[in-house]
Design a protein around this nucleic acid. Structure first.
Lengths: 116, 116
DNA sequence: TGAACACTTGAATAAATGTTCAACTATTCA
DNA sequence: TGAATAGTTGAACATTTATTCAAGTGTTCA
């Protein structure tokens, strides 16, 4: 009982401790946020929300190099954010998970509603 | 027109280019995701969603040191995720922005619906 | 088959990040 | 005032991360 406001926070502390997620779960959630936290990856994901695209077009949209985009795509693929499918000479990328759109849109909404 | 599937992707490319956010906006959004991408900060934010708490209790909940939590709180404060308010010897922290709850909950939902 | 295109990969480098430690400020109360 | 409590801060360190470059794989087509 070091904190003076023990009484005031009793309920918050109790609820926070009850609701705290397991470390593994927190890490899984954070991994998704971390993947969306890089501007280039965010642009890749945003672009793919409009439809599937090959690496060349993603480079064009993100104004980045083929190699950099490919490295980022690998991370997104490993994190189950995107899916790859070879079509002839090209590799088509698409969004792998339906929740991603909601998370991205929530981020955009947060931006536009700032200052309310 | 290097990509073979130009026809197929014409619409996706067009839409992606139209909808692409400004670099500054992408960076603002990514900053929020980056702040939520660290397990300790995520735990701090989750705990504060249950009600305001002082540093000591946040340490207890996050199983971290006072100094580490304080450093993380400064980042969260700079990013307008949390707010600080001195109450006597303690500093009470609370969530500064209404959208944070939705973003966090979206992350949690993504976790539980994995595999659908 | 071999040249051209599309993409991937590994190593190297530079930059950003998180934690710890020690020293510091701010507040209360005897 | 001074001791105790609560929290902040800066420097140092190790770790992670993103990009670049060069070399590689896979596919198509003449």
């Amino acid at each position: 009982m070091i904190c003076e406001h023990e009484k005031l926070h009793e309920i918050s502390v109790k609820r926070a401790k009850e609701h705290i997620l397991h470390t593994q779960d927190v890490e899984k959630i954070c991994k998704v946020f971390r993947l969306l936290a890089d501007p280039n990856r965010f642009k890749i994901v945003s672009a793919l929300l409009e439809g599937e695209l090959c690496v060349y077009h993603l480079c064009e949209i993100c104004q980045s190099t083929v190699s950099a985009v490919s490295h980022q795509l690998r991370l997104l693929k490993d994190g189950n954010i995107v899916r790859a499918k070879r079509m002839g000479k090209n590799v088509e990328y698409s969004i792998a998970d339906g929740h991603i759109r909601e998370i991205v849109e929530m981020g955009v909404e947060h931006l536009y509603c700032k200052g309310e």
